[in-house]
Nucleic acid binder design. Structure first.
Lengths: 215, 215
DNA sequence: TGCCATTGTGGCAGATACTGTCATATTGAC
DNA sequence: GTCAATATGACAGTATCTGCCACAATGGCA
């Protein structure tokens, strides 16, 4: 295994260039396979009728491993919504502590829709697929709300620190976050709903409408 | 049918006056006992550390019976929030289909806070106890949001029918409901929060502040 | 008052979700 | 090439929740 080993090493380090090492890339791949399996099974049958064991088998991993990637079968179908956490984290530094509360928070949550403005993009197609499924599955909607709730608590803490004494009252901050979150969710829902019925739907326009209405 | 039969009939109907018969009253009593047991155990330990078996034992019923009353241990602590459904149902007829959407929906959801405006009332004390517990227990918060989500779907259907063609667009209706719901939840939370820290707190004033802020 | 349909309850078995732990294999750094 | 870190799988165990059945309590009706 002399030359073979060296070869393997070189390959490994080259791969670190984009994916942080083979290990991490393999992890992302497994994660994606679980998600694909879950979405397919959910679409074929239903969320309730699909077991974790089935998803794990379809993805080629053990049930135990499934739970190392996702906390529940619902979460397996919604990794898209975890990207939201990244979007929020990335946008936090841009929040102006002196700015108007509602405006700043809407600006922050508006980042969530950015990646999906082009209906034809793969990201948008994926999001549409999930949102469509969500419209039929109450348990998925509940899971999204659950994720949203957890995110809310973190965002509130982060924003409270950032706004400091300007908004020491938690009431308005919490409300601003919940409203911004509702605007985003309603926009995605309406977007998927309209495309489902064949209507043309522009996510940017829908989001703007929702935003205006919320004020 | 003799006089005896008539007498029994009358007695039965008299009981229906407050409790709809002994059966229903007994049911309410059992329900309350389960809730009390759950709240006590949750407060003593934590929601996660408390099992359904323990709650059932403390309430003097079998675990099987527990699940005939509540779908989960979290729900057992939150029957208060099911009163919301009754409040909404009662208020639906008063919604003006010609009125402004946001205004009407806020009017409807505002009914939820009505029973708790007097801080000293037993209902308010009970609500405070639950809300305080909720602030420490993420799983209870999640359960409340879950109940809220289910209620939302029903309310949306009812209001869509009531508003008819005036608001054929689901986006604004959904958003109005979600915002009104968030206003109520944030108000209760701030109310409990301020009383917890010893501050004076007027639920009516807080709700008004939240309402103004949301516009 | 007595009969009967309805309804509440408990016990049991079982499916499913999830977690801790250990042994094993793979990866990656030196 | 060796060793530490990490990923996986298998296993056992706990908790949630449901269907089913037998039994008891209730309430309508003759």
């Amino acid at each position: 295994m002399g030359a073979g080993t060296a070869e393997r090493r070189a390959k490994t380090e080259a791969e670190q260039g984009h994916g942080q090492g083979l290990r991490e890339r393999r992890r992302q791949q497994t994660r994606a396979e679980i998600t694909d399996a879950a979405l397919e099974l959910f679409a074929k049958g239903s969320v309730a009728a699909t077991t974790v064991d089935e998803i794990a088998a379809a993805a080629g991993v053990s049930p135990r491993t499934f739970f190392r990637y996702f906390a529940s079968k619902e979460d397996a179908a919604l990794p898209v919504h975890q990207d939201f956490n990244a979007a929020i984290a990335a946008g936090l530094p841009s929040v102006d502590p002196q700015g108007e509360l509602r405006r700043e928070v809407h600006g922050l949550y508006g980042l969530m829709v950015q990646p999906y403005l082009d209906n034809a993009s793969p990201a948008a197609q994926r999001m549409l697929q999930v949102t469509r499924l969500m419209r039929k599955e109450p348990s998925l909607r509940a899971a999204v709300v659950h994720q949203s709730l957890e995110r809310t608590e973190e965002v509130q803490a982060a924003l409270a620190a950032r706004f400091g004494a300007v908004h020491e009252d938690a009431l308005e901050l919490r409300l601003a976050i919940d409203i911004a979150s509702a605007v985003v969710r309603a926009s995605f829902d309406a977007w998927a709903s309209r495309l489902e019925t064949g209507e043309p739907a522009d996510l940017a326009a829908i989001y703007q409408q929702a935003l205006d209405f919320s004020k």
